[in-house]
Design a protein around this nucleic acid. Structure first.
Length: 424
RNA sequence: GCCGCCAUCGUCCAGGGGACUAGGACGCCGCCCUCUCACGGCGGAAACCGGGGUUCGAAUCCCCGUGGCGGUACCA
């Protein structure tokens, strides 16, 4: 089995393209065959180093490798011209105002064998003699693709459904060249939540967007595999090895799918929590360009769905944060309420000052003791502390956070909050 | 216009003549857990596009309609 992924080098790798790449990769790996990469671009102007590198980067990030390539279609122009000349010589094509057209028979039909859709029949009467070379002699897509697939001995062409209507033309070129076409599989398209073609308006639209949004490549692989394919009634999580083993084209659905980011977020959170602490810290440190995040990761990880969620939640553990005014208003209140909250905070300060060792357990014991002593609800004591140390109403567990900050830092931050109350 | 593809909960995927009172997941709602936010647990609402046919029996097969999408370039 020889399979190719053939992106157009127009820049970012679209999510739909990423799924096509994944399916090709799973197929190649599952069969122990080769995946080859061809940059589909008869007009080599578009294959700028930046555009190509962007695509390769996205594929690498996804963990999809290739055995051969990338090949550039633009570099094969001589071979394409050769075959165009051969088609004219053999009477399969003719010149028309400088351009070269392939002869399409008046009668009959070309049947495309599609693994996903069955046999799709295209009547010749509805297809014009189509152009395979421009007046300047340069080859057109439908010619170039057919010649390349043939020369590269491609056995399976897996691509988006938008190519289905072009396929009979490619099959006709192949037959005119005396070759049998490969097996085709046209994947359903991917849409945004509004049913329209997926675009930046919908949020993430490219692999780059997904990386920036803090998704893990292993989660993206799992999610993408399930957009248009299902293994059985209940299985949702697949290791990549399982995908390689179980993926098959005959279970790919025919209907378009909607890219649903909330489900990816959920799945990403599951993958995030399965990562061991050290590995998660490593990825976050790399992403944020910082060191020493191991401890914050330990206490914040259960609340994360994406890597991007970490810093807003845990930055206060590394550096002091300004107070969130809304949170202050909600937690401290005004007037008497604020004075009472401040009083509880002051009591917490005194209690914490005497905790030794300043570890999670003793901190919890002390603060719960204070709650009992004051006869108030736990949050009446804990929320002002949370606000004082984090500046926010949301944080990892209060005991872990306080213990991690240490006595000195915790007391300083509480003092700063109390000073703010005094100063109005 | 013409050609082609498609149609099960809001979304993704199962089910492909009887096991369907249609299954799982996300999301949503409720309850539990709880120091916030999450996580986790339990429960709930939620779908076979419409009409004809075939059949003892249709979500499943066929036809028509409707709707969505794609193509119809000297683009890829």
């Amino acid at each position: 089995m020889r399979v190719r992924f053939a992106p157009s080098p127009t820049g970012a790798l679209h999510i739909g393209g990423a799924r096509t790449a994944l399916y090709n990769w799973l197929l190649a790996r599952g069969a122990g065959g080769a995946l080859l990469l061809r940059i589909e671009d008869t007009d080599r102007e578009r294959s700028t180093p930046e555009n190509v590198e962007q695509i390769l980067d996205s594929l690498r990030w996804l963990g999809l490798d290739w055995d051969e390539g990338p090949f550039f279609q633009g570099e094969r122009a001589e071979r394409h011209r050769e075959q165009i000349a051969a088609l004219v010589r053999d009477g399969h094509a003719y010149e028309d105002e400088g351009a070269v057209r392939l002869r399409v028979p008046e009668d009959g039909a070309t049947v495309v064998a599609d693994v996903i859709r069955g046999e799709v029949r295209f009547e010749h009467a509805a297809i014009q003699d189509f152009v395979i070379a421009r007046s300047d002699g340069s080859p057109l897509y439908n010619l170039a693709v057919a010649v390349d697939d043939l020369d590269m001995s491609i056995t399976h062409v897996v691509r988006g459904e938008d190519h289905l209507s072009n396929t009979p033309r490619q099959v006709m070129v192949l037959r005119a060249l005396g070759a049998e076409p490969p097996l085709y599989a046209h994947l359903p398209l991917l849409h945004g939540p509004d049913g329209k073609k997926l675009s930046k308006r919908h949020g993430a639209a490219s692999v780059e967007d997904l990386r920036d949004a803090g998704y893990l490549p292993e989660a993206v692989r799992n999610y993408l595999a399930l957009l248009g394919w299902g293994y059985d009634e209940t299985t949702t999580f697949f290791t990549t090895a399982e995908l390689v083993e179980r993926f098959s084209l005959d279970r790919v659905s025919r209907a378009p799918a909607v890219f649903d980011e909330p489900k990816l977020r959920w799945m990403n959170g599951r993958y995030l929590r399965e990562l061991d602490e050290q590995e998660l810290a490593r990825r976050l440190e790399q992403r944020l360009g910082r060191d020493g995040l191991r401890a914050p990761v330990r206490i914040a990880r259960e609340k994360l769905q994406t890597l991007a969620d970490f810093w807003p939640l845990a930055a206060f553990l590394v550096e002091r944060q300004p107070f969130d005014e809304d949170a202050w208003g909600r937690i401290m209140g005004e007037g008497d309420a604020e004075r009472e909250a401040a009083e509880r905070l002051a009591r917490a300060r005194s209690a914490l000052a005497g905790v030794d060792p300043f570890d999670e357990q003793p901190v919890e014991q002390t603060l719960r003791g204070l709650v009992e002593e004051l006869g108030v609800k736990p949050k009446a004591v804990f929320q002002p502390i949370r606000l004082a140390i984090s500046g926010s109403s949301i944080s990892p567990g209060i005991f872990e956070s306080v213990a991690l900050l240490g006595r000195e830092e915790t007391l300083e931050r509480i003092d700063a909050a109390l000073a703010r109350v005094r100063e109005g």
